[in-house]
Design a protein around this nucleic acid. Structure first.
Length: 592
RNA sequence: GGACCCGUAGCUCAGCUGGAUAGAGCGUUGCCCUCCGAAGGCAAAGGUCGUGCGUUCGAAUCGCGCCGGGUCCGCCA
């Protein structure tokens, strides 16, 4: 990083303020200067940046904040980038930067391209981001979609902010549900062979009944027949489970995962690794995890108290193998083994997390549906126990998406045929609209997804609004013959002086800071909001050009001013693309 | 009974991890387009931030108690 101009103006100023504060108050504890914040003030009239340094330092320094603010302002005024610094309010120091310092971001943006905003904040920490992890028991539906988009965007965001990210999908291919799936696929296989049995006869003959009756297993049955003939069901009649379970299960899970991968690809969601629950258990990871915890004295045999409130009908006290999750803040200890000796889902997931740790991850982030909220504490406890607190564990919960059409709720019913698969959704509104819209709400807030609204071409559709801004940028640049960024970076930027132009540049200069804040908060939706603000500034400038011809981007009679404005337009397009890239949305060249 | 999430303008939602007079879009109201950049633009009205205490120089933000909504709660995943 040998840029003479800092890429993150706020971080650079934070360092300056901290240094000035140390110079002013030599005895100040180091952590006070480090905690100093430099942020854009809520009210733009207060300047470009404001710092709370004087208020933080007041108590340890034993001086009133206003006095410190006055002294600090004087020092900051001497900085070359600062036009003015003034104490204000309860002890803020407001800073106004010189226009030249703000404009200086334009060549930086043009040089860095879409890498503008990349940060080292994450320090290369190896983080495992697990998302989707839908059970391989059927095609993906809209319920999976939000987690997929949020997880993918969060992984992009953390990578941009300097974390070393592994994108992981945990395949739940070991539990009772997969067994039920195998039975269901076996039924379709019997049908393919022309079995005389009726569905109900078959359903009654298997444990738990026929749980997955969807049509999507018909091709699976055909595929099993194509591979095995009637070998697994001689005479088209059910054979003993042990004769067919493994091949049927493996083939079915394989085909389901293939379908899921295709759905994910259609949504543009990527994963680096697919970790199989079954493979982990077979490799002995569960036993390893249990032994590890036992070695720490965290495993015991015991009987849990009955849950309060409504009791399950078949409740009876039972001795179980338990993990001392309460030692790490959980509400109760948690069972690890089912009565047949196999691992509970939780136990297998502990194995999964031991595997993540063993692969060298220092941080684990999950994206889960809100219905898994009750599972967070125990898993956090497990990771703490496994890593002796060295590996962090966080969960981003996503709330339900209500699908609407023209303001009316779309009923989600498999039977009525109104069940919305992920594929249907993408085909109807397009991948980019799906992704962008899924990021226009905080993950843990419920969201309405109106199929008509998200493809509407109007101001109140953020997808359109942001894409339109980029298309307008591109349109202007095309009209000017697409000058190369290097040429634009040489433009004489003092031609950019209108308040609307400066406001746009300020907004662009906030991109690196936005990336860092969003990454720290694990909140990719902030990128969507930021891009709407950039688009609003740009459209505002465009609109001014409609009324005031001297503000148009291209002016035949003013080649130097035109070049400066083209530089601004090109920088705007770059920042929008950089943000869309985090969201996994493709920028458009023109609106159609 | 308990745990977790949520409660901000008529509606849908932001609010940069404790800062200054709480924001945006929609909707409402009022202006603006014969034409050169109107799939629109400008402006206004609209909030005791569910509620009551507390911590703090300072609270929508942190803590506790209520009220309201959601999710979950022993060998399902």
């Amino acid at each position: 990083m040998s840029h003479p101009v800092p890429e993150n103006l706020f971080a650079a100023m934070q360092a300056e303020v901290a240094a000035a504060l140390r110079g002013l108050l030599p005895g100040l504890p180091e952590d006070v200067a480090a905690r100093v914040q430099v942020e854009p003030p809520r009210d733009p009239a207060h300047g470009d940046m404001a710092t709370n340094a004087a208020m933080l330092a007041a108590k340890p320094a034993g001086r009133p904040p206003a006095a410190i603010a006055a002294d600090l302002a004087e020092r900051l005024r001497a900085l070359p980038a600062v036009a003015d610094a003034a104490p204000a309010g309860p002890g803020f120091v407001n800073l106004r930067l010189k226009d030249a310092a703000i404009r200086g971001q334009i060549p930086v943006i043009l040089q860095r391209g879409e890498a503008y905003g990349d940060s080292r904040l994450g320090g290369g920490v190896r983080v495992d981001v697990e998302y989707v992890s839908a059970n391989p028991t059927g095609p993906m539906h809209v319920g999976h979609c939000r987690g997929a988009v949020v997880g993918d965007a969060l992984a992009n965001l953390l990578a941009k902010a300097g974390w070393a990210v592994t994108r992981e999908y945990y395949v739940n291919d070991a539990g009772a549900q997969v067994l039920a799936l195998a039975y269901a696929a076996y039924w379709r296989y019997l049908q393919a062979l022309g079995t005389p049995l009726t569905e109900e006869e078959y359903a009654q003959s298997i444990p738990g009944g026929l749980q997955y009756r969807g049509d999507y297993l018909i091709p699976v049955g055909e595929a099993i027949k194509a591979r095995f003939g009637d070998e697994l069901a001689p005479g088209a009649m059910p054979a003993p489970v042990t004769d067919w379970l493994e091949p049927v299960r493996d083939m079915t899970v394989g085909l389901m995962m293939q379908a899921i991968r295709e759905d994910l690809a259609a949504l543009g969601v990527r994963h680096d690794v697919f970790v199989s629950e079954r493979a982990l258990v077979e490799a002995g990871m569960l036993d390893r995890a249990e032994a590890l915890l036992a070695g720490k004295g965290l495993i015991y045999r015991g009987v849990l108290d009955a849950p309060k409130g409504k009791l399950p009908e078949d409740w009876e006290p039972r001795e179980q193998v338990l993990f001392r999750a309460t030692r790490f803040g959980d509400d109760t200890d948690r069972p690890l083994r089912k009565s047949d000796g196999s691992g509970t889902y939780f136990a297998n997931d502990i194995a999964n997390h031991l595997d993540k740790i063993a692969r060298g991850h220092e941080a684990i982030v999950h994206v889960w549906g809100a219905d898994h909220g009750g599972y967070v504490k125990r898993m956090k406890a497990a990771v703490q126990a496994l890593s002796d607190g060295a590996v962090s564990f966080e969960v981003v919960l996503t709330q339900i998406v209500h699908v609407l059409r023209g303001g009316q709720p779309v009923r989600m019913s498999k039977r009525a045929g109104t069940y919305v698969t992920l594929r249907d959704l993408i085909e109807e509104v397009g991948r980019d609209a799906v992704r962008f819209t899924m990021l226009t709400r905080k993950a843990d807030a419920q969201m309405e997804f109106d199929l008509d609204r998200v493809i509407e071409q109007s101001r109140d559709n953020p997808v359109f609004y942001v894409q339109y801004a980029h298309a307008r940028c591109r349109s202007v640049l095309r009209q000017a013959g697409d000058p190369p960024a290097a040429a634009l970076a040489e433009a004489e930027l003092s031609h950019l002086s209108d308040p609307a132009e400066m406001a746009l540049i300020r907004k662009l200069a906030a991109w690196p800071r936005t990336v860092e804040a969003a990454a720290l908060a694990r909140e990719p939706h902030r990128i969507a909001f930021y891009l709407q603000e950039v688009a609003a500034e740009f459209h505002g400038l465009w609109n001014k050009g409609r009324e005031d011809a001297t503000l148009r981007f291209i002016r035949e009679d003013e080649p130097e001013a035109t070049r400066a404005r083209l530089a601004l337009v090109a920088a705007t397009a770059i920042v929008i693309r950089s943000g869309l890239a985090v969201m996994g949305v493709a920028p458009v060249e023109e609106m159609r």
